[in-house]
Design a protein around this nucleic acid. Structure first.
Lengths: 340, 340
DNA sequence: AACAAAAATGCAAACGATTGCATCTTTTTT
DNA sequence: AAAAAAGATGCAATCGTTTGCATTTTTGTT
C-alpha cells in the first residue's frame, strides 16, 4: 500500500491536474506565466501525492545539478587523514552553507581514482562546481581544473597568486600574532612546528620570523621544524628533539591544534611544565582546544564565515560574475597554555 | 584551447571511432559483446579526448545514480553539532568505504528543509540508498523512509527491533565492560553520564547497571545523570553536582569522549586527581582520547569496520538481497584516566 | 459587438546515454 | 560450397523534464 507500482511522473501529475506537462512544470516552480489558481492546484496535488521532480531528467535537460563537489585535498604519503577534525569541521560548515543556498554537497577526497577533476565532476554533470579543501604541496590538479574553466574555490592561503579564488585565514597575521604574544610574555627561544612547504604554513612561518626580527631576535634555523602536520609526528619530533638537544626552547608555535596536542603530550610526559617551562600556541581552535588541560591558546579561524565565503564566491562564478580571494577573520584566543 | 566549444558526447565519440553509439556505449563498459579490438579503440579515443559519460543522462536511463545519501541525524534542540568529531569520523570512513565500492557520498543533515527522505532522496533520483547516522530520539523519519521501501541502513543500537538493518557497537557490552573495569580497580560510587533516552545509551546504561549488580552494588539512581551529549553539558553538570553534593563519586562512565572531556576539565579545574580521586572512562576513542592528559580510557568502536558493514548491508539491499543488523567490534582501551 | 492586446496554456523538440532486438559478418560444420 | 552457428554491430525507442514558440482563452477598448 505504501509503495506505488511506478513512481509518479510529471506527466501523470499533469494529467491528474488536467493540464499539460509544460504547465505543470511551470506551476511547480511558481512561474508567473501560469495563473495563480492553476499553480496552487498543481502544487497541492504534488504535495498530496508527495511527488518530487526526477533530478536526473531535470539535470539532463537544464544542464545544472545544484550539486557542489567538496574535495578533501589530502597530502599523499602523510597520515593527515580523512578524519582530521579541522577539515571535517569545514565540511560540516560547508554543508550548512551550501544547503542554505539550495545546493547539495558531494563529498570526495583526493585519493579517488581520477585526477582529472574537471572531467570527472563537471564534464560528467556530477556537480556544477568544486570546492577544494587544502592546497596540497603541489597545485597541479587544482590548476588543471581551473584551466579547464571549472567554477572553483579553494581553501588555503588567500594571498596565493592564482586564477581561482582562495579563501583562508590571514596566515601571516596568525603566525605573527601568536609568536608576538609569546615574545611579549617572556619567551625567547621559540620553536616553530609545521611544514613550510605548504603555502598556508609558509606564511605562518614568515609571520613567526617577522615577529622575532621585530623583537630584535635573530631567528635560529634549528628552531624551525619541518614535520608532517599530525599529532604523532609532533609527538615524535618533540621527544627526539629533547633527547638530542635537551629542552632548549621555551615556547612553541604550532601550525595546527593537532600538532600542538601531540607536542603537549610529549612535554607533559616529560614533566615539562606548561606554561611555566614552555608555552604553546596552536592553530585552528578545534573544539578540543578549550577542553585540553591546560586549555590551548590558539589562533581561531572562523570556519562558518569561511564556508559562507567559499559558497558565495563559488555561486558568483556559477552566475557568471567574477570572484575574488577572501580573507577569513583570524584572531588569537588566549587560554592557559601560554605564560600569563 | 583548453575548452571545447561543446562537450564531447557519446555520439560524437562514436563517430570519431567510426562505430555506432550503442557500440561505443558497450565498449566503454567492457561489454564482451564487443570485439576486444573495438573496445580498445573506443577507450583509447575516450581517454585521449578525456571524455566522460554524462551521468545525468545515464542516471535517467538506467534509473541508478551510484550515489548514497548520508544523513547526519542530529538531535534537535541540542548542541550536538554537525561538527561532532565522532560523527564526522564516521562520515570520513563512509566516504572511503563507499568510494571503494564505486559509490559517491551525498552529505546531508536532518536540519534540511524536507522530512520526507524517501521522496527527497530516492523518489527524486538523487541517490540509490540512504545511510542514517544516529537514531535520534524518535525514529519517525527513519520508519517513514523504511516503510516507503527505501534501501536504508542506520548507525545506532544493533539490537533495535526494526524493519531496517542497524549497525552499531555492542553497547550493552561496552557499558558493562567499562563499569566492570572501574569496579575491579576499586571504584564504588560510579557516575553515569549520558542520555538514556537514546537507544544506544540506554543499552550502555543497562550494561552499567548490570555490572554494578553483579558486583553486589545496589545502583544509586542519583548517580545516573541525564544530560545532553556535549562536553559543555558535562562540564556544567559536574560543576553543579559537586557544588550541591560535593565529590560523592569515585568513577565516571561517560557516553562519549566529548562528554568525558567536559567532565575531565571540570574536575581538573577543581584539582580533583585523575585517576587518584576519580577514574573516567569515555566512549568512541576519537583521535583526541589518546592525546589528553591523562590519556583517556575509553571504549573503541571500530568505525572503519562499521563503515564497511554499513556499505555492505546497503549494497545487499540494492542488489535485492536481504540485509541484517551487524555488531561492530567494541573493546575497552585502557589508558591513564583510570586507576591502575 | 468587433477587434486588439494581454494572459494562459499546450506542442513538440531537445538533453545524452542505454538496451532489446534485428541485422550484418565471420567462422565452423557437413 | 552451402547451411548453420556464433560473433559483432547498428536501429530506434526510451528514461522524465524543460522551454521556445504557437495557439487558445480572457480581458479591455472603442
Amino acid at each position: 500500500m505504501a509503495k506505488k507500482q511506478s513512481r509518479l511522473t510529471l506527466a501523470k501529475l499533469a494529467e491528474l491536474a488536467g493540464v499539460s506537462t509544460s504547465t505543470a512544470s511551470r506551476a511547480l516552480k511558481d512561474n508567473p506565466l501560469i495563473k495563480q489558481q492553476t499553480r496552487d492546484k498543481v502544487k497541492a496535488l504534488a504535495r498530496q501525492h508527495n511527488f518530487s521532480i526526477n533530478t536526473a531528467a531535470s539535470r539532463l535537460r537544464t544542464r545544472k545539478t545544484h550539486v557542489i563537489a567538496v574535495i578533501l585535498n589530502l597530502i599523499e604519503h602523510t597520515e593527515q587523514s580523512v578524519t582530521d577534525p579541522f577539515l571535517l569541521k569545514i565540511v560540516g560548515d560547508l554543508n550548512m552553507a551550501l544547503n542554505a543556498r539550495g545546493y547539495e554537497l558531494l563529498l570526495s577526497n583526493s585519493f579517488m581514482a581520477t585526477d582529472d577533476w574537471a572531467n570527472y565532476f563537471i564534464g560528467s554533470q556530477r556537480a556544477d562546481g568544486i570546492i577544494v579543501i587544502g592546497q596540497g604541496k603541489t597545485s597541479a590538479k587544482i590548476d588543471a581544473a581551473a584551466d579547464a574553466g571549472v567554477p572553483l574555490v579553494v581553501w588555503g592561503e588567500p594571498k596565493t597568486a592564482a586564477r581561482y579564488p582562495v579563501v583562508g585565514g590571514d596566515n601571516l597575521f596568525g603566525g605573527h600574532e601568536s609568536t608576538w604574544y609569546l615574545l611579549n610574555h617572556g619567551c625567547r627561544r621559540i620553536l616553530f612546528l609545521g611544514d613550510p612547504e605548504h603555502a598556508e604554513m609558509r606564511h605562518r612561518h614568515q609571520g613567526y620570523l617577522n615577529a622575532l626580527t621585530e623583537h630584535g631576535i635573530e631567528p635560529d634555523p634549528a628552531l624551525t621544524a619541518s614535520i608532517d602536520i599530525t599529532s604523532t609526528a609532533a609527538y615524535d619530533f618533540i621527544n627526539q628533539h629533547i633527547r638530542e638537544h635537551g629542552l632548549n626552547f621555551d615556547g612553541i608555535v604550532c601550525v595546527s591544534d593537532m600538532v600542538a596536542l601531540g607536542a603537549l603530550k610529549a612535554l607533559k610526559e616529560r614533566y615539562v611544565g606548561i606554561p611555566q617551562d614552555v608555552s604553546i600556541v596552536g592553530y585552528d581552535d578545534i573544539a578540543l582546544a578549550e577542553l585540553m588541560h591546560p586549555s590551548l591558546t590558539t589562533v581561531r579561524q572562523n570556519t562558518q564565515q569561511a564556508a559562507e565565503m567559499m559558497v558565495n564566491e563559488l555561486i558568483k562564478q556559477l552566475e557568471g560574475q567574477s570572484a575574488a580571494s577572501q580573507v577569513v577573520e583570524t584572531r588569537l584566543i588566549v587560554r592557559r597554555s601560554t605564560a600569563q
